[in-house]
Amino acid sequence: MLGVHFAVTAEQERFLLLANDESDIEVGDVLEDIEENWDDGGLSVSSDKAWDAIHRCLSDGSLDPDGGEYPLSHAVLGGRHLHEEYYVVHVTAAEVREVAEALHRVDRVWLRQRFGAMDDADYNGPHDEEDFEYTWENFVDMRKFYERAAKSRRAVIFTAT
């Protein structure tokens, strides 16, 4: 599954939350509209397949959305889940600011230690030095994205399909 974060406008956020709460509007339809009409301006970032390792490093080593400690746990899978079949995870604008601040304190050494501590049996990636470099590069891009989203006072939606 490929992961993408979007810093959504207040209107896009409202439609996604309404779709989550109303049965006659589908979250997938709203998300598809967002993706098809996205005018980036630096307010989205793809983490390709690295989102898996990034979440594990920032949480408790698992893909459990409730694993780990807030706010780092909310960078990828933590937050309000809006879809049952695939990941559509909502983080409020207030939470985005806290996540951005927490990500700013994560350095390469810390992330490398967390990456090394992941359970090989539960992680499907190669779990080697090249995989760490891939994870680190995507983490840095995601951290910059969260900084831009926080400055723009936007909520974030993470998707993996």
Rank of each mutant, 00 (worst) to 15 (best):
V30C: 04
D39F: 01
E98P: 08
F145S: 04
E11H: 07
H83Q: 11
W110F: 06
D119Y: 09
E32I: 01
N37Q: 08
V30F: 03
H83E: 11
H127W: 09
D107Q: 10
R108D: 10
G41P: 01
E137W: 03
A100G: 02
Y123V: 15
Y146A: 01
G125L: 15
H104P: 02
F115V: 02
L43D: 00
V88I: 06
A50D: 09
D122Q: 14
K49M: 15
L18C: 05
R108H: 14
A100R: 01
E147L: 12
Y134C: 09
V4Y: 09
S23Y: 02
D141S: 14
L103S: 06
L72R: 12
R153F: 04
D119E: 13
H127V: 05
Y87E: 09
H104I: 00
A102M: 03
E69L: 07
A93M: 05
D40E: 13
V91L: 14
N37C: 02
A53K: 10
V4N: 12
L43R: 01
F15H: 14
S23L: 05
Q12V: 08
A75C: 10
I157T: 05
V4H: 07
I157Y: 07
A10Q: 14
G28L: 08
H74V: 07
R148K: 11
T161F: 11
Y87M: 13
W38A: 02
G68C: 11
M142W: 06
L2H: 13
V4I: 15
V27S: 03
D122T: 14
G67N: 09
D128K: 10
A121D: 13
R143K: 15
L43Q: 02
V76Y: 04
S62P: 05
D60Y: 04
R14L: 14
R148C: 04
E147S: 08
L43Y: 00
F6L: 10
Y134A: 07
